[in-house]
Design a protein around this nucleic acid. Structure first.
Length: 415
RNA sequence: GUGGACGUGGCUCAACGGUUAGAGCACUGGACUGUGACUCCGGGGGUUGGGGGUUCGAAUCCCCUCGUCCACCCCA
């Protein structure tokens, strides 16, 4: 075997990029109508940015980051997610001077994990962040935009789960309650969760181990422990989601893996064909992050969509490529004329490639077929003398002879 | 990071430790000198993922390594 791509890093081939472009175009056309502007962010950031935002005891920071020393010895990291860089840019460029900022971005993220279906070391996300809006209506509207996006792509079986993680005024008290509860039940918990009691007790709530599910079944509920403002916020989010026609599933045990989330968190899962990596989009509110990173106190809401997981949910047939025309010149004079004809047809907007191979018309028609041609345009001695081309519809198996300047119209009109 | 399944022409897969590793599809040439898909006939294509070992003999057994997939973990 010669040199291959590194593990977990994949090439995305033309057949797939067609689908990816469709997804990106669709996202962009919907997001922009909701007031989002695109931001292009660096792929590498100072390591410190992620340690301070995502949280030092999270799995991402502890064992999944691609961190290097650059030539000056500074610690830099391939971004494992997009929110922290977006917030960094928001602060750096003082975008907070605007009443609200809505940012959209797309690009690769990097996490050092064992590859699996729907999980790669370089993976792509479409992300969106609303910075500077504390209203629960913002949460609901942004979620509805996301659901509309999935609807436009005709994603089947997507379910929205939401939860509220509370904020700085109610979560610490809840954590304490949960800590004491878990402490008493430590014997029933898995090894991992025993460790979490000290580091991140909330995580024990969404552990899949049977013993842990059993042990936490009567644990104090987060949703019941919210302070008044958080409870009101959560109710309003649910209320407005209903107005948007969205019926979310409240999952009080859903805990996110990043430390910066407050209040609303959510996850969209799809069951068809994604295996155990079935979350296609997730996100939530992070009201403390901007301030944490040195900006003014700014309430925010954002989400990220997993591109390859989303692409797996779509069937290629739904994304029709533009019809392809293959031009076949027979004889040296036709080849000469072809230079002019092909560029004129391209100018007219049709997608045309020329078959430069030698050989009989039969083998060249066969090549055209294999290239996936919708039309074959043939110009040989006969056509050349009369200023016409033979245009064959490969799918219908019909053909007609038309003047050169009518070829593009015929092809565009057909189909 | 842990556990498991699997790596054989471009693709899907055969081959009890025993001739020269096969088939279908794909490719290519011809039957058919300017018309693809169907048919028929011919042809090319393999360091059996890589390395080491056991054996008279390894695709097959053993060890290591790389990769893919699945699950755990975690997440998008």
């Amino acid at each position: 075997m010669s040199i291959t791509a590194i593990r977990g890093f994949n090439d995305i081939l033309p057949g797939d990029t067609e689908l990816w472009r469709h997804i990106e175009r669709c996202a962009w056309s919907i997001f922009r109508t909701c007031g989002f502007g695109e931001i292009r962010l660096p792929i590498v950031e100072k390591t410190e940015l992620f340690m301070r935002s995502i949280g030092e005891t999270t799995d991402i920071v502890e064992k999944e980051m691609y961190t290097f020393a650059d030539r000056h010895g500074d610690a830099i990291t391939l971004r494992p997610e997009g929110t922290a860089p977006a917030v960094r840019a928001y602060i750096e460029h003082k975008l907070y001077t605007a009443p609200v900022t809505k940012l959209y971005y797309t690009g690769p993220m990097f996490r050092y994990e064992r590859p699996q279906k729907g999980r790669y070391r370089q993976f792509y996300q479409i992300g969106a962040e609303v910075l500077g809006d504390e209203s629960p209506r913002s949460d609901a509207e942004t979620l509805s935009m996301l659901m509309k996006f999935f609807g436009t792509l005709k994603i089947q079986g997507a379910t929205l789960q939401i939860n509220s993680l509370g904020d700085a005024s109610c979560r610490p008290a809840y954590k304490e309650k949960l800590y004491n509860y878990l402490k008493e039940r430590a014997g029933e918990l898995c090894e991992n969760c025993v460790r979490r009691i000290e580091t991140n007790p909330l995580r024990a709530l969404d552990c899949k181990a049977a013993g842990c599910i059993e042990a936490t079944s009567s644990a104090p509920s987060l949703v019941d422990s919210l302070c008044e403002p958080c409870a009101v916020h959560f109710d309003r989010v649910k209320y407005f989601l209903k107005l948007y026609g969205i019926e979310p599933l409240v999952n009080p045990r859903m805990v996110r893996g990043l430390d910066y989330y407050t209040r609303t968190t959510f996850e969209i899962t799809a069951d068809n064909g994604l295996g155990s990596q079935n979350a296609v989009a997730a996100g939530g509110r992070y009201d403390g992050l901007v301030e944490e990173l040195g900006g003014p106190a700014t309430p925010c809401f954002g989400f990220a969509i997993g591109m390859e997981r989303l692409a797996m949910l779509l069937n290629r047939e739904q994304v029709a490529a533009a019809p392809l025309t293959v031009f076949i010149a027979l004889g040296i004079d036709a080849e000469k004329k072809g230079v002019e004809l092909v560029s004129a047809w391209r100018e007219a907007g049709i997608r045309v490639v020329e078959d430069f191979s030698a050989g009989g018309l039969k083998s060249r028609m066969k090549r055209a077929d294999r290239l996936g041609a919708d039309y074959a345009v043939i110009v040989g001695e006969n056509e050349l003398n009369q200023g016409v081309a033979t245009v064959k519809d490969m799918k219908q198996a019909t053909q007609e002879t038309v003047a050169w300047d009518r070829v593009a119209d015929l092809i565009k009109g057909g189909k």
